[in-house]
Nucleic acid binder design. Structure first.
Lengths: 324, 324
DNA sequence: TCACTCCTTGCACGTATGTGCAATCCGACT
DNA sequence: AGTCGGATTGCACATACGTGCAAGGAGTGA
């Protein structure tokens, strides 16, 4: 839980609050604050870090009412999505890009999620990176729901995915709905059967009611394969099949082609991600992408109308608009 | 005007935006940002200052949903106003207190004012201090309206007060309505006559529609007399009269007694401030107080139900609740 | 074109801030 | 009571940051 029920923490929080007011609203130096609080300057430094990390201090950047960058305008015009281009040095490698885009998203995610909302989230390296940096924001009666199963041949998936889920839930004080199924069933019939279970039906119903969906993109045939493709969720036969079917990527382990279509891809019959129709009904659909290698996948996702808000690094944004 | 229409400024703003994202969202050092922006570290430092000063970067402090301090709760319970206690060292003098409370208010004022609103503001040392530090916030179609005249025997008041007004208007990109009359007429009839003028009527009508009122408190009989009492607006006879009438303070040059009453105070017939009934109809009435010497005045203003939101320094807050 | 002014830049310096480390405090369990 | 582990503190150092100053640049008017 996020709230400090611990009375010992309460003092710390109160001090952090005071320190923040003195530092950010009155421009005192940490030295001066230390005196007022009867502690050492370094403790004040730590208090302030704590205040920022817990979301007590909230730093927002507001583009002067409009003035989206040329790139953002261009993307808006061509694809009808609100783009947020994250400035990243051109010579940063893909890992850095991912990390920096994720960090930026983590810091402003609170602007999209509030009390009484349901947020669906996928899992994967992008989501993992985001989860590690979210600035907390207290909410009431809100829920985080997992979009797709995460088990594979070797584990039930309750480690990796639930760690991500947990961090989101924790940061927002939200209730977490896990999805304790494998990413792919061996037999489509198992899925059909399980989906009729009331516990599963309830969860899927909840996915249908979500207010925000947050996801990265998978891209099977790129140099940097995403988690799904490296984690033992698929075997070589599956891969070949995807290739034959013309798949360019996936969202929450639902595969799609360059034109955004998902029909006739057998693997989807065994997968556990939400039907794209469900996503399309979600009011806000936030996609986080970094690295040129995900471009084909991104194009497909845009065709499929999966995205309302797109976060991507500058290089990828440029590449996206560089084609006719 | 606040908006950068100047295309030269546009570059600077864009850079400031990028720098802010890199600094506040991605935790890069200024050194690193300097490299990405092909400039020097010190320029980045200046860019970031600029970004904060222009409200491009907005730092908010959110009390964890509730957890108002004991003092704030106590004041809320006893007087029914939302209190915001500004932490200030106990051994700060009155000037420092005023400055620090004003700074705090200036930084968060934007949370109370938005597009399409009308804000009425008084003038005086408190308002002046606030005006010098407001963090800008762009708004549309909003208005700042002066609550009371500011002329006196020696000047028309278009210097001091309009400077304050101007800074508010500038910070919010709001249209400014000045009130070009003296603080007090010599003859009540002059006021009556002038109030019938259409230009004045329009202004007074606008005061009646304001969404926010912002004011400090005057306290005639304290060690630190406020601007009204030191600036040559009143002569010794007036002072004696106020004393006899049991006046403890004023809001926008409208005087009141300890019980909040204003009736039967002759000077009010000649003054130009808004009738308290007008203030009481205003949805949000923000009062800024600092220094124990204003306590009697504050008590009166509370009795008069002039305040919905009260900002005051810690020491004054303690003194306020220290009485039965 | 030149001279003048105002604004911006980078440098250099001093101050302010972040953080590894050892000492200390605190609570818990034996 | 004793002792153990984890968290918190202050110190000291390294780094990051803000700012006066002089140099450079852009614009203006003669």
């Amino acid at each position: 839980m996020l709230l400090d029920d611990d009375p010992a923490q309460s003092d710390r929080t109160r001090d952090a609050l005071t320190a923040s007011q003195l530092y950010y609203l009155q421009d005192l130096t940490m030295e001066a604050i230390a005196q007022e609080l009867h502690t050492s300057r370094s403790s004040v430094s730590r208090l302030l870090s704590h205040a920022r990390a817990t979301g007590l201090v909230d730093i927002q950047i507001r583009s002067p009412l409009d003035a989206p960058s040329r790139l953002e305008q261009e993307i808006q015009a061509r694809y009808g999505v609100t783009a947020h281009v994250v400035p990243v040095s051109d010579r940063a490698n893909d890992v850095d890009r991912l990390e920096r885009v994720a960090l930026s998203v983590a810091r402003i995610l609170g602007q999209y999620f509030d009390s009484n909302m349901i947020m669906g989230i996928a899992w994967g390296s992008t989501m993992s990176a985001i989860s590690r940096h979210i600035t907390p924001k207290p909410t009431h009666n809100s829920q985080i729901v997992q979009l797709n199963g995460a088990g594979n041949m070797s584990t039930t998936g309750l480690g990796y995915a639930s760690e991500i889920l947990g961090r989101f839930g924790n940061a927002f004080g939200a209730h977490v709905q896990q999805f304790p199924v494998p990413a792919f069933f061996d037999d489509p019939l198992t899925r059909q059967a399980l989906w009729r279970e009331r516990s599963m039906a309830r969860l899927i119903e909840m996915q249908g009611r979500m207010d925000v969906a947050l996801f990265g993109l998978g891209s099977p045939f790129s140099e940097v394969p995403s988690h799904v493709y490296a984690g033992g969720y698929l075997d070589p036969d599956d891969f070949d099949a995807l290739n034959r079917d013309g798949v360019v990527g996936d969202v929450a382990t639902v595969f799609f082609r360059a034109d955004g279509s998902t029909g006739g891809i057998p693997l989807n019959e065994r997968g556990t991600g939400p039907d794209f129709a469900v996503l399309q009904r979600t009011p806000r659909r936030i996609c986080v992408v970094s690295g040129n290698s995900k471009l084909p996948s991104l194009r497909g996702a845009l065709c499929a109308d999966l995205i309302t808000d797109l976060f991507l690094d500058e290089g990828t944004a440029r590449a996206l608009v560089a084609t006719p």
